[in-house]
Amino acid sequence: MLQFIANGVVVGAVVAVTAVGLTLVYSILKLTNFAHGDMVTFGAYVALLLNLSLGLDIWWTLPPAFLAGALLGVLGDRLIWSRMRRRQAGSVSFIVASIGLALALRNLIVFFFGAQTQHFRLPVEMRQPLGPLPVKLTPDEVHVIVAAVVLFAGVHALLRYTTIGRAMRAMADNPSLSWVSGVDVDRVITWTWILGGGLAAVGGVLYGMIRPIDPNMGWFLLLPMFAAIILGGIGNAYGAAVGGVLIGIIQEASVMFLPAEYRLAVGFLAMIAVLLTYPRGLFGERSLT
């Protein structure tokens, strides 16, 4: 039991890091980004490239992965989303375009890296369970949890104490009011993508440390991510983090009762249950219906 909770916390930490970006983009840009999962995959492959070809230690791949993810996010906005905003496209068009982007990204990865599963080159001792603990955890897994906590502290500080963070929260609450109050909307949008894309990519690297890397990894993470942000209350970065950990625990704990293949289904059913019984989620303010 304790073991499943521990596994759940590790997976949940990854879901939390990636889901924060998804919820920020959703609340600030009003975009349900189905390509977010593939931005996670992208991050993992950037790290894989640096790790295998340059022999870079996996921890040193995190900053370049963040930068690459941020760049991808900003580029996507310049090429696609800003054009659609200018043409006042509807929410459905945004969703369909994000699916198009998801297909394109995933298959570009297949094109360049192949569809087979791959692994980071990690020191062997990182995969050995740690000594006297009540649960089996490898140093890698502990590092993933620590990294997630550090990243989240950074997000918290940025949103809470910086001007741009305040502007982002204002945009999420009331876009037109913040625009009249002199918030630089374009700057907020750029920063949202830097943060959202960067965190997605870094989350992908962390995910690649606890499971094999393949072009579908992020797509399959998308449902748990959506489950996490709905559970936590959509638009709420803190809720997304808590929701992520909870979904991770629920999924891993389900292995006790169901075949492991159903993990994804369990996360999804948890999401439906939340939508039906408490659609605002744990920390949400807005009504969903």
Binding site: I80, R83, V96, G100, L103, N107
Partner: peptide, 10 residues
């Protein structure tokens, strides 16, 4: 296919 979808939506 993905690119066609995106261009159509724009």
């Amino acid at each position: 296919i993905g690119v066609v979808l995106i261009l159509l939506m724009i």
